[in-house]
Structure formats: structure tokens, C-alpha cells
């Protein structure tokens, strides 16, 4: 006999949302750090760096995120370390986000007219200074909208952590559904909770695109 879906179950699901938020923040912070390195490597003057980063992006963009999570989870166990699902999910999501953010930001960096970099060279700035003081600040402006858009992707991606056994929002829904069997209600609530996290970001990203004219139509 199934239990009846009660207020406690609703509270349980609502509270599990915090793990989705936390995992998203970790994935974004780590992914942004690593992604910046990947983007810089992608536009580096050294061929070997460009090649290594291009290969990294290619590998992660052409294999399923779920497989990446499995490989991290089981791969770390092989080395003899015990890894809890949160750490495995976080590591997998960071590696994945780094590839996508790296590719997005490479586009933003390359969208800055080369004259900017050449001007920096002409006044004697080092390549490091040209990147940090001239190119990146301008690239940042056009990077904001697609980055916010990708944040939505990250939040949705965290749902896969449920498959390797981390109890975030989706898994809390599964657990509740197994006990009460009200799938339409429960997964409806879960979907709604994702929607209220993602939709404002999607909306904001679209507004930013229009304001900055980076949708290819403006200015």
C-alpha cells in the first residue's frame, strides 16, 4: 500500500532544491575557472596549447554528459579513492561546463577586432597585459548574455547527478514517487521547481542580448 503524498513530501522536495542550486554554483564556478583557461589556450600563440584545448572541447562536446559522469565516478574508484556522488557529479559537471564555456568564450575573444590587440602591441604591452587589460574586458561585455544562457544548461545538467545517486531535486522526486506513486503531481512539481530557477535566467539572457545588440541584429 502506497503512502499518501503529504506536506512532508512537498517540503522534502522543496529542500532538495538547495542541492541543485549548490551543485549548479559549484559547476559554474569551477567550469568558469577551467573554461577561461581552455578559452585562453584555444587562442594561444602556441600551437600545442591550441591543439590540446581544441581536443578537450571536441571530446567533451561529442560525448554524452551522462557518460562523462559515469567515467569520473567509476574512474576515481579505480584509482582506489572512494568518491561520494556529490564530488563525482561536481567534477564531471565542471569538466563538461569548462568545455562549453571555453568554446563560448573563445568566440567572444575572437570577436574583438585584431586592431585592439595590435594597438596594445604598438604601445609596448606584453601579450599577457594585452589579453587582461584590452581583449578580455571587451570580450566580457559580449560574453555575459551567452554565459547566462549557459547557466540554464548547467542547472538542467545537474539533474543527471541523480543517476549516479546524488539526491538533488530530480532524485528527491523519484524517491517520493516510489513511496507515494503520484508521478504526474510529483514530477510536475519538480519540473516547476526547475522552471522557476531557469526561466528568469533565460529571460535575463534574452534581455541582455537585446540590450547589448549581440544577437547579430542590433548595432
Amino acid at each position: 500500500m502506497n503512502r499518501v503524498f503529504s506536506l512532508n513530501d512537498l517540503t522534502y522536495i522543496l529542500l532538495a532544491t538547495r542541492w541543485t542550486v549548490l551543485l549548479s554554483l559549484i559547476a559554474f564556478a569551477g567550469g568558469a575557472f577551467l573554461g577561461l583557461i581552455v578559452a585562453l589556450g584555444r587562442v594561444s600563440e602556441r600551437r600545442s596549447f591550441r591543439f590540446a584545448c581544441a581536443t578537450y572541447i571536441r571530446l567533451f562536446q561529442n560525448t554524452p554528459l551522462l557518460m562523462q559522469l559515469f567515467l569520473v565516478y567509476f574512474g576515481v574508484n579505480i584509482v582506489g579513492l572512494n568518491i561520494d556522488p556529490l564530488a563525482a557529479a561536481a567534477a564531471g559537471l565542471i569538466l563538461n561546463a569548462a568545455a562549453f564555456l571555453g568554446e563560448i568564450w573563445r568566440g567572444c575573444i575572437q570577436a574583438i577586432p585584431p586592431g585592439q590587440d595590435e594597438a596594445g602591441r604598438a604601445i609596448g604591452l606584453s601579450s599577457w597585459h594585452r589579453m587582461w587589460l584590452i581583449v578580455l574586458p571587451q570580450a566580457l561585455r559580449i560574453a555575459i548574455a551567452p554565459t547566462v544562457g549557459f547557466l540554464v544548461q548547467i542547472i538542467k545538467n545537474t539533474s543527471l547527478a541523480s543517476i549516479i545517486g546524488f539526491t538533488e531535486l530530480t532524485r528527491s522526486g523519484q524517491i517520493t514517487n516510489n513511496a507515494t506513486f503520484r508521478p504526474f503531481l510529483i514530477f510536475g512539481i519538480v519540473a516547476l521547481l526547475y522552471f522557476v530557477q531557469c526561466w528568469p535566467l533565460s529571460y535575463w539572457s534574452r534581455k541582455l542580448e537585446l540590450r547589448l545588440g549581440t544577437d547579430g541584429k542590433g548595432t
Binding site: 540554464v152 530530480t170 504526474f184 519540473a191 526561466w199
Partner: peptide, 23 residues
């Protein structure tokens, strides 16, 4: 479009596989 693009595929799969039989 907004409903699908702002929720994870995994949850959509669960809604369809477990939810539709309830209907």
C-alpha cells in the same frame, strides 16, 4: 517552447513515462 527549454530532459522523460499512464 519555454516549458521544455527551461526544464531538464530527464524530468520530461519521467513525466511522460510515469505520468502519462496515470492519465
Amino acid at each position: 517552447v519555454e516549458a521544455i527549454r527551461n526544464t531538464p530532459l530527464l524530468v520530461q522523460v519521467f513525466l511522460i513515462f510515469f505520468g502519462l499512464p496515470a492519465l
